[in-house]
Design a protein around this nucleic acid. Structure first.
Lengths: 126, 126
DNA sequence: CCAGCCGTGCTAGATTTATAGCATTAGGAT
DNA sequence: ATCCTAATGCTATAAATCTAGCACGGCTGG
């Protein structure tokens, strides 16, 4: 369990990897707002790999790094953590906040799908 | 901008404060899974206060700490960060994931409110 | 009164994180 | 073949985090 927490830089790097899916050391560095040296990024990637949070493949003479954990699982964990700390006990508020923050970016099709989910929830809750 | 990053412990402590709203040093310590010494928690709270992330009130002879930032703003920031890193470019997926993860905990009234939000989004998107 | 119990402030030290620089290897071009 | 570029592995050191312990002050009960 223990959810091995990350240091500041490690957290930044893991976030980049989750966002990009996979990336070289240089790409990771480029995606960090206040980037440290290339060397430092590589060192962090190595230690993250040692700890089992990241893995790499050799690709075109380069190393391409990616999160070791199943992305879906990581997403669920992040969601749960966020709901627990910022919307404790009221997931509905979380959904509402998320929805209203992005309402203008949602397509009609998106809204249809959400509609379906809500209808399903009503079915279950009956 | 720069989103002043926290160290591992600082992050843990801030999360507890957001979850509880306000808490004494002892309560913060109790809420941390693998707690450091009471002294260490106090030291962290002090440095967090120096940096302006936390403030305290004297209450019943004790210090009660709370986040300095507007909780609503912090929530919005956390949501945006999560969507950006785990659901880049597809907020709809994020909403869907959140919704299906908690569908069983939502009351009929909750669902009504979400319904309203979706309807509003349709209006706007027209 | 005064001893014991909280609570705080502070400082010094251990531990972890973060960084840079150097050595080495592989490929591609001249 | 040899040089140049671009990548990796490693190690030493700088910087920040994390921690514990001690000193002090105020309340409270005997």
């Amino acid at each position: 369990m223990s959810a091995a927490p990350f240091s500041r830089r490690e957290r930044q790097i893991m976030d980049v990897l989750f966002r990009l899916g996979k990336a070289t050391a240089a790409q990771v560095r480029a995606a960090i707002p206040d980037p440290p040296s290339y060397s430092a990024v590589r060192a962090h990637l190595r230690t993250l790999e040692d700890k089992g949070h990241v893995r790499h493949k050799a690709e075109e003479l380069r190393y391409v790094y990616m999160p070791a954990q199943n992305p879906e699982k990581a997403r669920r964990g992040a969601l749960r953590h966020l709901v627990d700390t910022f919307f404790p006990g009221s997931p509905a508020t979380a959904v509402a906040a998320l929805l209203s923050a992005h309402s203008s970016e949602l397509s009609g099709r998106d809204l249809d799908e959400l509609q379906t989910l809500i209808d399903q929830a009503r079915e279950e809750g009956r």
